[in-house]
Amino acid sequence: MRRGTRYGALLGPLLAGGATPDLVTRAARGLGLPERGRYAVVVLGTPVPDAVVAEGPDVDGARWWWGSAEASPGAVEGSPGAAEAREGGRQVAVVLLGPAGAARAAARLRELGAGPGGVSPVVGSLAELGAARRLAGTALLTCEPGSREIVRLDERLPAALLVSRPELSTRLLAEVFGPLLTLAPAERSLLVETLEAWLECGGSVGRAAGRLGCHRNTVFNRLRRLERLTARSLSRPRELVDLVLALEVLRLSSAPP
């Protein structure tokens, strides 16, 4: 993996988006990268661990280029991405992927203790890195506050839609979970935990009861109470979608349930 001011200066215009063909060609030559290839962008919310920036390709053959950690995570000072880069101390890398693709890149970051972080979908050229950086940043926003998650955008598309429109997410949470949020924290957490367990168990009350360590009737009664509070039925698909999305907004909130 490579890192430094020169690499950051070359990557910056690409990651900012809208780079001209001549600029893309110059950056490709300076970085020793093909203009067309299988690329992903990584955005980390914390400083990059030293092990992550070791020189050379990784075991999958992927090659990593990190932008400067000072003025930018891959954005040169004065570029459209520079101010955004400084916010929150984010770090950005361009990855020329190996055979295992973006999933292996995400797994390697987890193994090295990086995170939280977001990984973009695969793009086919250096000219598409600006769009990939934005999508990787959106993926990072879907990480639970305080977590060390490394997530790929394609694994978090519903959550990505929610974080992309925070005003609508806030409205959704208030509209669906408003009465639930007025409960005492412990009571609210119990109902939320039960809903999460029921969803993770594929809608099985019995399996959810086993996971929670309680009787299945207890799970059933909690779910019925949640339905009454939210005026939505778990048996109606459209209303279930409302509940699942509101639960996702709650997960992404900095406040505990």
Rank of each mutant, 00 (worst) to 15 (best):
R29S: 15
R29M: 12
G30H: 05
G30W: 01
L31K: 05
L31A: 06
L31Y: 01
L33E: 09
P34S: 08
E35L: 09
E35V: 14
R36G: 12
R38Y: 08
Y39F: 15
A40F: 00
A40G: 10
V41T: 07
V43C: 08
V43M: 08
L44G: 00
G45Q: 08
T46C: 03
D50F: 04
A51R: 12
V52G: 02
V52T: 07
V52L: 12
A54M: 13
G56N: 14
G56T: 14
P57H: 14
P57W: 14
P57E: 15
D58C: 03
D58L: 02
D58W: 05
D60V: 02
G61V: 12
R63Q: 12
W64Y: 14
G67C: 09
G67E: 04
S68Y: 04
A71L: 13
P73L: 13
P73G: 15
P73F: 15
G74F: 04
G74Q: 05
G78R: 11
G78N: 10
G78I: 03
S79W: 03
S79K: 06
P80V: 09
G81E: 07
G81R: 03
G81F: 04
A82Q: 07
E84P: 01
G89I: 06
G89T: 06
R90H: 11
R90A: 09
V94W: 00
V94D: 03
V94F: 00
L96I: 05
L96Q: 13
L97E: 07
L97C: 06
L97W: 04
G98M: 10
P99A: 15
A100L: 12
A100N: 12
A100D: 14
G101Y: 04
A102Q: 08
R104S: 12
R104C: 00
A105I: 01
A106P: 01
A106F: 08
A106W: 05
A106M: 05
L109D: 07
R110H: 13
E111A: 15
E111H: 13
L112T: 09
L112R: 07
L112Q: 10
L112M: 11
G115I: 07
G115Y: 02
P116K: 11
G117M: 07
G117C: 07
S120W: 00
S120M: 02
P121E: 15
V122K: 09
V122L: 10
V123W: 01
G124A: 06
G124T: 02
A127Y: 00
A127M: 04
A127I: 01
A127E: 12
A127V: 01
L129R: 09
G130R: 01
G130T: 03
A131L: 06
A131V: 10
A132Y: 02
A132M: 05
L135S: 14
L135I: 10
A136F: 03
G137Q: 00
T138S: 05
T138K: 03
L140W: 06
L141E: 10
T142Q: 05
C143S: 11
G146M: 07
R148E: 09
E149A: 15
E149V: 06
I150Q: 08
V151F: 04
R152P: 02
L153P: 01
L153M: 05
D154E: 15
D154H: 05
D154L: 10
E155L: 02
R156W: 05
R156H: 09
P158H: 11
P158W: 10
P158F: 12
L162S: 00
L162C: 02
S164P: 02
E167Q: 14
E167V: 14
T170N: 13
T170W: 13
L172M: 11
